[in-house]
Amino acid sequence: MYQLRGHHIFCLLGYRGMGYSKEYVENMTMLHQTLRENPKTWIQLIEGPDRLCEKFPNTSEYHCEEKGIAERDSAILEKMELKIGQILTWEEIEAKIQKYIVPSDINTVCESCSWRSYGVCEEGVQEILNGSGLREVK
C-alpha cells in the first residue's frame, strides 16, 4: 500500500518523467509504473508529506509542508469526494476522476503549480476520462 497526498493524484496523471532531481524522478517513475501496471494497488490518502515528498531534493525550497500545498490537497480530495485516511485502489481513484474531474479543473485547483504550464496534467485527466489509464513513461 502507498500513502498519497491529495495533489499527487493529479501529479501522477500528468507525470512524463520530469522532476526536481534524479532521485525524485526515480521514485515518481517507480510509483507511476506500479499504478499503471497494477491499478488494483492500494492507496491510503494522507494529510501532509507522503512517500513522493521523501525524495524532494534538499537543494530546492521544500514546499511539501506549505499551507498552499495543503489547501490544494484538500481541494482535490473534496472535489473527488475523498477523505483523509481513506484506503482505496488506484482503479477506484481513476473511477472518481472519471466521475468528478474535467481537464479544466487543473487550471483552477492547480493554479499556482509550476508544472501546470506544461499542459500535461490536463492531458492526463483526459486520458483517464477516455479510459486509457496512466500514460506510459519512457
Rank of each mutant, 00 (worst) to 15 (best):
T34K: 15
I76A: 06
T41Y: 04
H32Y: 10
I46H: 08
E94P: 02
E136A: 15
L4H: 09
W42A: 10
E54Y: 02
V120H: 13
I43P: 11
R36I: 05
R72W: 00
L52M: 14
C64F: 11
W90M: 06
E66P: 00
E111I: 07
Y24Q: 02
H63R: 11
E37H: 03
G131P: 06
I9G: 07
I87Q: 15
N107F: 10
K83A: 11
K67P: 00
C121M: 12
P39E: 13
G19E: 08
E94K: 07
S74W: 04
T89A: 04
I97N: 07
E122S: 12
P49W: 05
T59D: 04
T34W: 01
H7V: 08
T34M: 09
D50T: 04
G124W: 05
S60I: 00
K99C: 09
D105C: 09
E65S: 14
K67H: 09
S114V: 07
I69K: 12
V137P: 04
I46R: 04
Y100W: 13
F56H: 12
I43G: 09
S60L: 13
E23F: 01
I101C: 05
R16L: 02
M28P: 01
G85M: 11
E136Q: 14
Y15E: 02
G133H: 11
I93M: 06
E78G: 12
R51K: 09
T34D: 15
E123G: 00
Y2F: 15
V109H: 05
S132Y: 11
L129D: 03
S60D: 10
P39Q: 12
K22F: 11
D50V: 07
R5S: 11
D73E: 08
K79C: 03
V125D: 10
S117N: 04
I9A: 05
G6K: 09
E92F: 06
E71A: 15
